[in-house]
Simulated scan of single mutants.
Amino acid sequence: MADYAEITYAVADRIATVTLNRPEARNGYTIRMADELGAAMDRADRDEDVRVVVLTGAGKDFCVGADLSQDGFDFDPSTGPDAAWQEPAGRCSKRIFAMNKPVIAALHGAAVGGGVTITLSCDYRLASEDSRFGFVFTRRGIYPEGASAWFLPRLVGMGTALDWMISGRVFPAAEALEKGLVHKVFPAGTVLDEAYALAREIVTATAPVSVAVTRQLLYRMASAASPFPVHELDSRLIGGLGASPDAVEGVMSFLQKRPPEFGMRVDKDLPPYLPWLDA
């Protein structure tokens, strides 16, 4: 899917920018947008020239959630979906969850409903001072989606997740920052530049294979019943560093006080025994 109707995709300086592009509808989320976002994330993840993805929205809002003027389903509501159907927001959030590349969400204006749930699996959520957030499902008589009932309590704790999801209230960037939903808040008009600054730091200072493994370690192993299986995998990873060119380069660049030049590739050099590779 090289051409898109409801998003844009561009790569520069090893950063892929994915932009929700329905500003006339305040980037209301549609089935087509969901599928295009999934395709764009897949494209970025497979491109070794891309190190980081920045996700943002055109116009004054990031995304106001599902576009209620659209049909909303890609099945006949009178008969319901087949057993394999996946709701649209989760198609995006699950694809971001599985990424080997970090994803930075640059948020401004409204990010409500599906417009916030699709960002919960991003590695960073940076917000503008004018951002507003809301898990408004109960106020529409519907249910949380995007696997948000799994992601949100892990980010902000069960108490805050219950408050936001049961009340369905909209809250400002300051509360989102205080509770841990977003990492930082910036003056209006600057959040995208700040996202690019963070992306450039990741591109220049980190090793792509190390980032990919670390990102998935945090997600896949945080729910382990004890630290013991995590330490078993740690031990195998650390035990293999003697054969890792990136580990040698990381140490040498530090000792020589120069920027690192990491050469290992995510598409070829991930440790083959990682338990999630078969998932």
Rank of each mutant, 00 (worst) to 15 (best):
R132T: 13
F133R: 03
G134D: 01
G134I: 03
G134S: 04
G134A: 01
F135I: 02
F135S: 00
F135D: 01
F135L: 13
V136A: 04
F137Q: 14
F137V: 03
T138A: 10
R139Y: 01
R140T: 14
G141H: 07
Y143M: 15
Y143P: 01
E145C: 07
E145L: 02
G146W: 04
A147K: 11
A147N: 13
S148K: 04
S148N: 06
A149P: 14
W150P: 02
W150V: 11
F151M: 02
L152I: 06
P153K: 10
R154K: 13
R154Y: 02
L155Q: 15
L155H: 05
G157F: 03
G157D: 07
G159S: 12
A161K: 03
A161F: 11
L162A: 11
L162D: 13
D163S: 13
I166M: 11
I166H: 12
S167I: 08
S167F: 06
G168I: 02
R169H: 09
R169G: 05
V170H: 05
P172S: 09
A173W: 03
A174W: 05
E175R: 12
E175F: 06
E178D: 14
E178T: 12
K179Q: 11
G180F: 03
G180A: 02
G180Q: 08
G180V: 04
L181A: 06
L181M: 08
L181T: 07
V182D: 07
H183T: 10
V185Y: 02
V185L: 07
F186T: 05
F186M: 05
F186W: 11
G189H: 07
T190L: 06
T190G: 04
L192I: 09
D193L: 12
E194C: 14
E194S: 10
E194L: 04
A195C: 08
A195R: 08
Y196T: 07
Y196P: 06
Y196A: 08
A197C: 08
A197T: 10
R200D: 12
E201S: 13
I202H: 07
I202E: 08
I202T: 07
V203S: 04
T204Q: 14
T204Y: 13
T206M: 09
P208S: 10
V211C: 13
A212H: 01
A212K: 03
V213G: 00
V213L: 01
V213D: 01
R215Y: 01
R215S: 10
L217A: 02
L218V: 14
R220F: 11
M221L: 15
M221P: 00
A224H: 12
A224S: 10
A225S: 13
A225Y: 02
S226F: 00
P227W: 02
P227H: 01
V230Y: 00
H231N: 15
E232G: 04
L233T: 00
D234A: 12
D234Y: 15
S235L: 12
S235P: 00
R236P: 00
G239V: 04
G240I: 05
L241W: 09
G242E: 09
G242C: 06
G242Y: 08
A243Y: 09
S244V: 05
S244Q: 05
P245V: 02
D246Q: 06
A247G: 06
F254W: 10
F254H: 15
L255N: 13
L255H: 12
Q256V: 07
K257L: 11
R258Y: 07
E261M: 14
F262V: 06
G263V: 12
G263S: 09
G263F: 02
